[in-house]
Every structure is written in C-alpha cells, then in structure tokens.
C-alpha cells in the first residue's frame, strides 16, 4: 500500500509536469548558474541555470515512459515466444529455448552499451534495447506455465472440439497464466527504469537537453559536483530509488494477492474444475522474479 501510494504520487507528478513544474525543463537562466536550493528554485539550478526541480519532474515522464514501454516490449516478445514454446513443444520449444538461453548469456550492459553506440542514443532506442534484451525471463516463465496447463483436461477438451490453437492459447492458457505475467511485468518496469538510468548516466541513453533521471545523475561524474553540489545528483538518485522500491513493493503485493490460496476457486477450468490440492500447489509461483 505504501509502495502503491508512492508510485501514484510519482506518476501523478510526472503526468502533471506541465502544471506543477515552476519552470520549463529547458529554460536557461544564465544569471543563476549552479545556484543552491532556495531563492525561487526549490532544488537549485544546474550548470546552465536550469531548474533542477522542474527537470526532475519532467525526467520522471521519461522514466515512466521508458519503464512502461520497455516492459510492454518484453511482454510482447516474451509472451509470444514463451507461448509458442510452451504450447507447441518439440522443435519449436527447443529452438525458442536455445535462443532464450543465448540471449540470457549476454551480459546485459556490455551488449546494451554496444547497441546504443551503434544505433545512437535516444529514448526509443533505449526502450527497444531494454525490451529486446530483457524478455527472456518472461518467455521461460510463460513456457513453464503453459507446459503444465496444456496437459489439463479443459485444454484437451478444447482441442478435441477443434478450437484453433490461437484461441486456446489466448482464451484458455494465457488467461490462466496472467497472474505471473502481471507480476513479472511490474518488476520489469522497475528493471527498465534502472537500466535506462544506467545507460543515460553513461551518455548512451536519453540525451541532454531532454531530462531523464539517469542523465541528470551523470552530473555526479564530476568531482566538483559530487563534493559541493549535492542538489544536482541527490534528487535524481533519490527519485530512482523511490520509484524502483515502490514498484517492487507493488509487484510483491500483487504477487501475494494473485497467488491462489488453498480453497480459492480456479477460474475457467471447465470440466476439470475439481482439481486436487496437489495440482493447486503446482500452480503456485515464486513470489519473486528477477
């Protein structure tokens, strides 16, 4: 609940940025360079006199955008491939899983930095890069879910009735696996925000003058800023920590809420509704995904 409230506040701030921010994010004031907090600037100004508080709020928009979009890309790729592997099995399964393993073997930052250097730094490239490298966990999760679900009676029945595989996957299988996917997606948002911050910090993510928490944090690369100008790097750092923590709290609560408790009804199980407790236990997923 705490997590959800913090998240709500941060997202609301980001969405309402144009109304809340006292200055435009790129408004330069050359007569108030590196001004400490106070005196009209709640969190001071940066090296060309831009208001740090306003940039922080606008930077939140970028973080939310990157987090959510990258998570959607991951869901799209991960669920599709996971569903194909899980439902079809056999050769498709082997191919998809080998691909997944290959991508999982890549050290994320080494590849992401290379890709960002090749394709150039921009918000959309960051989203695609994070999405394209982070879907593997979800694909494995979906596959594992589907592997067990597809052997269930209601799926066999649907198949026997000649329902098309696409319909079976969407109506019967994914609908029963939505819990873990949702939890995973929530945590993926947090991971994507962190990845964006790291890439932007290195100058390979979102580029100045567009503010993002990561590229604001990169001011701390200078010894002078680190030592004397805390208002340039503590606020974006704190924002990232708060946002990621909040999302993780939400993810954990979701995970707990969506875990089937003994006795809870399992939806859409059709003729196989009387599952025994053993089967239910199999459907419990771990409360953490990383």
């Amino acid at each position: 609940m705490v997590g959800f409230s913090i998240l709500l506040v941060l997202v609301a701030l980001a969405l309402a940025a144009p109304w809340i921010a006292p200055f435009a994010p790129d408004e330069v004031d050359l007569f108030a360079i590196e001004a400490p907090p106070g005196d009209g600037h709640l969190l001071g100004t940066d090296e060309i006199g831009r208001d740090v508080f306003s940039r922080l709020i606008y930077g939140g928009r970028v973080s939310v955008l990157v987090g959510v979009s990258a998570a959607l890309v991951q869901i799209l790729i991960g669920t599709t491939l996971g569903a194909i592997a899980g439902y079809r099995g056999g050769l498709s399964d082997a191919l998809v899983m080998r691909l997944t393993e290959v991508i999982m073997c890549f050290p994320f930052y080494a590849i992401a930095i290379t890709l960002a250097a090749i394709f150039g730094a921009s918000v959309w490239n960051v989203i695609l890069i994070i999405g394209a490298l982070h879907w593997t966990g979800l694909a494995r999760l979906v596959r594992a879910e589907l592997l067990s679900l597809r052997e269930r009676g209601f799926v066999l029945a649907a198949r026997a009735m000649g329902v098309s595989p696409i319909k079976i996957i969407f109506n019967h299988l994914l609908r029963n696996a939505y819990g873990p996917i949702l939890v995973y997606a929530t945590l993926a948002v947090a991971n994507s925000i962190l990845a964006e911050a790291a890439l932007s910090f290195l100058g390979l993510g979102v580029r100045q003058p567009q503010p993002s928490w990561g590229n604001m944090l990169s001011a701390a690369q200078s010894m002078r800023v680190l030592t004397y100008q805390w208002w340039l790097w503590i606020p974006p750092g704190a924002a990232i920590v708060l946002m990621v923590l909040a999302i993780n709290f939400v993810g954990e609560s979701l995970s707990r809420a969506l875990s089937p408790r003994p006795g809870a009804p399992i939806r859409d199980l059709g003729p196989d509704a009387n599952v025994n407790s053993q089967t239910r236990k199999e459907r419990l997923w771990p409360t953490r995904f990383s």
Binding site: D26, E27, V28, L30, E47, I48, R50, Q208, P209
Partner: peptide, 10 residues
Amino acid sequence: RELSAPIIQQ
C-alpha cells in the same frame, strides 16, 4: 559546446 546548444535555443 553541448551546453551552449540549449542557450542558443532559448
């Protein structure tokens, strides 16, 4: 030079 760009913009 990077910092001069937003100033010129303004």
